[in-house]
Write a protein that binds this DNA or RNA. Structure first.
Lengths: 123, 123
DNA sequence: CGGAATCCGGAGGGATACTG
DNA sequence: CAGTATCCCTCCGGATTCCG
């Protein structure tokens, strides 16, 4: 398909940028966690195991900047901030889920192939 | 969906690893270029604009190790090496294309939101 | 032609401490 | 609680050179 490939034109560039953009260590995980609806910062942090405050904040800000996630802060004590997928953000869900499903379904075979390959090379 | 999320269990770990694995700078692009069938190293390098020899080699080796790509070298002069998606590799194509299509369709709106956001913050 | 090996700068990202 | 600010270090990945 040309969408993935095309080396020429601004279009290809943008697509590549987005791919790289979403492909970082945390973005897809965070998006996945937002599937269920609005959720607050600390809850998000709990559900994405291993993420640091710094990375969670940066990831959310990036997503907010791109219009994929909306942020609402409630001036209470203690403070509460909720994040939610925007309509645009929701459109990302199907491809992301398809991707995750593929990874889930293929992981066993991939691990097997990997072990096979390593055994062949190590010897 | 649990597939993207689940923090517990080896399963979640593997999926996350694969996501991170495929999410690097070049892997998806290379897979996309292989859609059309077997293709040789230099041709691949031409079609993935901006990739270095090092990264192309590393990416291909990683894909080969995971059983997504097969490598066949022809002992000729000059040497020729062809890469091709394995059946397992082909199963990655649909999700990857869905992803690229999303990026393609959404890029305009994302760029708009980004500009909007930046204007709001910069002021 | 198709790599492998080496060098190297800089971004990515973790840990920690502080603030409103 | 929800961040921000700093430090610091790993390792990704580009450029270059060498080999079969």
């Amino acid at each position: 398909m040309d969408d993935i490939c095309s080396g020429e034109g601004d279009d290809g560039r943008v697509v590549r940028d987005l791919l790289e953009h979403l492909g970082d260590k945390w973005t897809l995980l965070v998006v996945g966690m937002l599937e269920g609806g609005a959720i607050r910062y600390s809850e998000l942090k709990n559900r994405v195991p291993g993420i640091s405050q710094r990375m969670l904040t940066l990831t959310l800000k990036k997503l907010e900047r791109d219009g994929l996630v909306s942020r609402e802060s409630f001036p209470e004590i203690p403070p509460r901030v909720e994040y939610e997928l925007t309509p645009l953000g929701h459109t990302l869900l199907p491809p992301a889920i398809a991707f995750a499903a593929w990874a889930h379904d293929s992981s066993a075979e991939i691990l097997a192939r990997r072990a096979e390959f390593d055994a062949r090379v190590t010897r």
